[in-house]
Amino acid sequence: MMMGSGFDIDLDEVTLAGAKRGDMRACEKIYRKFHRQAFTLASRICKNRELAQDVTQEAFITAFRRMHQYRGESPFWGWLRRVIVNHAISALRKLPRHEAIELEDYMVTSSAGQERLGQCMDLEQALTQLSDEDRIVVWLHDVEGYKHREIAKLVGKSESYSKTRLNRARGKLRALISECDQQPLQNMTHDTTLSATV
């Protein structure tokens, strides 16, 4: 079954071996296979396009430099995804607290998404309203299929913390979406510069 971020892509052994040897063509092949998925994941965690770009690039550089550490015990995509998640969480931690993020910065690339922006707070926008940790927990659990134990390890907290965050995040998302549904469309302004705090 395909996961939400579409990260579960199989990679042939020849390409993997080539990348481990430092073959640039093999590295490029991997990059092109996973770039979009990696960027999506980084964007969902960081909620800022520029930061997600930096995170994606840094994570790929790290992954290629440390290819020898990948032992092949689990699928390659899982290993690469962990590198991306670690980089994204680490990048968020380096940011100053309460940094304002403009919703304008937020990416909506599909045409349907472009139409929705400024009309109603959809699920994508609601996601950006969550705190960093709520967003990380709900995305990693619900979309990437991480277990609470794994999330707890990633964020440096307990499993029960992860569970509590997940319930809270889901509740907040539901509330944000239903809040939007109750508001008449004409009251929703086209203000795309509404800022949210991280």
């Binding site: 939400g4 971020s5 579409g6 979009r36 998925q37 969902r44 996601l127």
Partner: peptide
Amino acid sequence: DPLGLGDLGTIEP
């Protein structure tokens, strides 16, 4: 995934 977050799809870099 009760909210269907997985349906949001990928983002074009």
